[in-house]
Design a protein around this nucleic acid. Structure first.
Length: 572
DNA sequence: CGACAGACTTGGGTAGACGTAT
DNA sequence: ATACGTCTACCCAAGTCTGTCG
C-alpha cells in the first residue's frame, strides 16, 4: 500500500516537487496548395481563402456529424447551426473581408473539403512501415511531453497537448456556437512547476506568459480560452497518485454520509412542514437531490451558455403536478435539459407534503420563474456542510450511486451462475446506477445491425443444439441395443458436445439481453466517477471473477488504489 | 452578501486502434 | 489477410464548489 500512504503534507499543499516539459504545441496548419480554391458566391477568392486559412476554419469540416452525407453530396458540410448568421466569425475578419463575406451559404468549401478527405484517405492507405514510423513519432512526443516528475514519481499527464484552433461548437443550443477558438501560443501559457526543477523551455523564439511555483494547486500549465473566457489546465492522468488519493477521499466522504443520511432524511421530512418557505424549498430540493440524484444546479450566466438546469435552477415550466396518474398518487412529472443538454424525463410519485410544497412554490408564478426562488446552491451547500463535514450536494450522487451498486450486486448475483451470468448481473447493477444518474447515450449507429448479427448467431446456435440433442438420442438408442463400451463412450461424447453448445447458446442469449438493455444507457460515466471501485473489487474477489472482466487496463490503472486495498469483505 | 475567478470533477461523442471472425 | 465490429483513448465542453474581493 505504500504508494498510497506517504507522508502527510501541510494543509493545502499538493506537492513538493514538480518537473515537466510544458505543453506540446499542436503544429500549425499547413498552407493549402494553390490549386485548392475557396469560392465566394461562385468566384474563386484567393485572398479571402487567406482569411479562412488564417482562422483555420476548414478544420471544422470533419466536425460534421453526418459523414455519410459528406460523401453523397459535396456541399458545404458545416454542421447544422453553423449556417446563418456568420456573425460570430465576422468579428474575426478585417473590415474588407467583412464587406465581402456576408453569407456563409455563399461560401464554397468543396475543394478544400475534398483536399482534406483525400489527404485523410492517403494517410490511411500508407504502407505499414510508414504508419509504423508515424506511430513512433507520436510515441516519442508522448514519452517526452506526456510525463512529469511529481515528488519523485514519474506520473502520466492527462492532456499534454494544447487544443488546436477551430470553431467552437458547444452542446445543445449554444449561443456561442460558431465562434473561433484561437490558437494557443506559448505567450498565453502559464507554467507551474517547482522552483528547483528544470524549468521547461518555451518553443524557439517564444516566451511563456509566466512561470510560477504554486504547490497548492495540481495543474502543470494553464491558459485562458477565448470563447468562454475560462481557464484551461494541463493536469495529471487519473492513474496518478495525486488523483487517486483525491478519488479515494471522495468515496470516503460518501461513505461517511452513509452514517448520517438517515438523520438528514428525517430532518428534511420535518422541514417540509417548516413555517419558513426557504427551509421548505431547501428540504424539497434536497429530497430531489437525494431521491432522484439530481445535480445541484448552479445559476448560469444567461446568453453565455445553453439553457440547462439542475435542481436549484429548476423552473416552473420544468415540472408538472398530477394528483393522480396511472394509478399513482402525487405524481411529479419532470422534464428538463440537464448537463450537456441531456434530457431528464421522469414521473415520480412523491410524498404528500412534497406535493403540497411544490403546489405552493408554483403558485402565482410564470412558467419561466424559478421553482426554488429562495434557494441557491451556496445556501444549500452551507447547510449540508454543517450537517456533515465535507458534505455537498454532489456527494449524494456519489453516495446513492455507490450504495445502489452494492445493494444491486447483493440482490442480483447468483453464486450458482457461471462467470458470464455473474457479469450480466454486474452490468445490470451498473445499469441501475446509470439510470439513476440519467447517463444516456444516443443509440449507436450500428446497433440494429449488430443486434441482427447476434440474433443470427443465436438462431444458428439453436439449430446446432437441436442437432446435438438428436445426436445424443441416437447414440443412446444405439447403446441400448448394443450395450457395448464403444457406444457408451459415444453417448458421453455426444452429451459433452451438447452441453458445450448449450452453454454457448446461453452465453449468446446473455449477450443479447445485455446489449438490448444497454441500448441507450452509458455505463462509463458512473463506473468511472460514481461507483466506489472497492465495491467492484470486493465483488470480484468474493465471486472469483478476474478483475480484467470489469475493468480494462486504463480503469485498472485509475483504480489501482482500490485494487490494492479492498478485500472481499469490503463494505461501502 | 453577490459577483467573479479559479480549480477541479464529470460528461458524451468520436476517430482510429485493436481484436476477432471469415 | 482482410474486413468488420467493438473498445479505448482522446477530445474538450460543462458542470460543481471554494475562495476572494468590493
Amino acid at each position: 500500500c505504500s504508494r498510497w500512504e506517504e507522508e502527510k503534507k501541510e494543509d493545502g499543499v499538493k506537492w513538493m516537487q514538480l518537473e515537466h516539459r510544458g505543453p506540446y504545441f499542436v503544429p500549425l496548419y499547413e498552407p493549402l496548395p494553390e490549386d485548392v480554391q475557396f469560392y465566394y458566391d461562385g468566384s474563386p477568392t484567393l485572398e479571402l481563402a487567406l482569411f479562412f486559412q488564417r482562422t483555420g476554419i476548414w478544420i471544422s469540416i470533419p466536425f460534421s456529424k453526418d459523414r455519410h452525407k459528406q460523401q453523397l453530396h459535396v456541399e458545404l458540410v458545416l454542421p447544422p447551426g453553423f449556417s446563418q448568421p456568420l456573425s460570430p466569425l465576422s468579428q474575426e475578419m478585417t473590415s474588407e473581408e467583412q464587406e465581402i463575406i456576408k453569407d456563409l451559404d455563399k461560401c464554397d468549401f468543396r475543394e478544400i473539403h475534398k483536399y482534406f478527405v483525400d489527404k485523410n484517405e492517403a494517410r490511411k492507405a500508407l504502407p505499414k512501415e510508414e504508419k509504423q514510423k508515424l506511430k513512433e513519432e507520436a510515441d516519442k512526443i508522448q514519452e517526452e511531453y506526456g510525463y512529469c516528475i511529481l515528488d519523485g514519481h514519474r506520473e502520466k499527464i492527462g492532456n499534454f497537448k494544447t487544443e488546436p484552433p477551430g470553431l467552437f461548437r458547444g452542446r445543445g443550443e449554444h449561443p456561442k456556437m460558431g465562434m473561433l477558438k484561437k490558437r494557443i501560443m506559448p505567450e498565453d501559457v502559464i507554467i507551474n512547476c517547482s522552483r528547483d526543477s528544470k524549468i521547461p523551455e518555451p518553443p524557439e523564439g517564444h516566451k511563456w506568459k509566466e512561470v510560477r511555483c504554486d504547490n497548492t494547486v495540481t495543474w502543470l500549465a494553464s491558459w485562458t480560452e477565448n470563447v468562454q473566457n475560462t481557464l484551461k489546465y494541463i493536469m495529471l492522468n487519473p492513474s496518478s497518485k495525486l488523483k487517486g488519493e483525491k478519488d479515494w477521499q471522495k468515496y470516503e466522504v460518501a461513505r461517511r454520509l452513509k452514517d448520517v443520511v438517515h438523520t438528514i432524511r428525517a430532518q428534511y421530512r420535518r422541514d417540509w412542514k417548516s413555517k419558513e418557505i426557504k427551509k421548505q424549498q431547501r428540504a424539497v430540493a434536497l429530497y430531489f437531490i437525494d431521491k432522484l440524484a439530481l445535480r445541484a444546479g448552479n445559476e448560469k450566466e444567461e446568453g453565455e451558455t445553453a439553457d440547462t438546469v439542475g435542481c436549484c435552477s429548476l423552473r416552473v415550466e420544468h415540472i408538472q403536478l398530477h394528483p393522480q396518474l396511472d394509478g399513482q398518487e402525487h405524481v411529479v412529472e419532470l422534464d428538463f435539459l440537464g448537463k450537456d443538454s441531456i434530457r431528464y424525463y421522469n414521473k415520480v410519485s412523491v410524498e404528500k407534503p412534497v406535493f403540497r410544497n411544490l403546489q405552493l412554490f408554483m403558485k402565482n408564478k410564470d412558467p419561466a420563474d424559478d421553482l426554488f426562488d429562495q434557494l441557491t446552491t451556496t445556501f444549500l451547500n452551507k447547510y449540508l456542510q454543517h450537517l456533515m463535514d465535507g458534505l455537498t450536494a454532489k456527494v449524494f450522487r456519489t453516495y446513492n450511486a455507490s450504495i445502489t451498486l452494492q445493494e444491486q450486486l447483493k440482490a442480483l448475483t447468483n453464486p450458482e451462475d457461471n462467470v458470464a451470468g455473474k457479469l450480466l448481473s454486474y452490468n445490470r447493477a451498473n445499469r441501475a446506477v446509470a439510470i439513476l444518474c440519467n447517463h444516456q447515450r444516443s443509440v449507436p449507429k450500428t446497433f440494429a445491425r449488430s443486434m441482427e448479427v447476434l440474433q443470427e448467431k443465436i438462431d444458428a446456435k439453436k439449430k446446432q443444439v437441436e442437432e446435438a440433442q438428436e445426436e445424443v438420442r441416437k447414440a443412446e438408442e444405439e447403446f441400448k441395443e448394443t450395450k457395448d463400451a464403444k457406444a457408451e463412450a459415444n453417448v458421453e461424447k455426444k452429451k459433452k458436445l451438447l452441453k458445450r453448445l448449450e452453454e454457448q447458446l446461453a452465453k449468446l442469449n446473455i449477450q443479447a439481453t445485455d446489449k438490448e438493455e444497454n441500448k441507450q444507457i452509458a455505463l462509463g460515466t458512473s463506473k468511472l466517477n460514481y461507483l466506489d471501485p472497492r465495491i467492484s473489487v470486493a465483488w470480484c474477489k468474493k465471486f472469483g471473477i478476474p478483475i480484467e472482466k470489469i475493468y480494462n487496463k486504463t480503469q485498472r490503472e485509475k483504480f489501482a488504489w482500490a485494487i490494492d486495498m479492498a478485500g472481499e469483505d469490503f463494505e461501502f
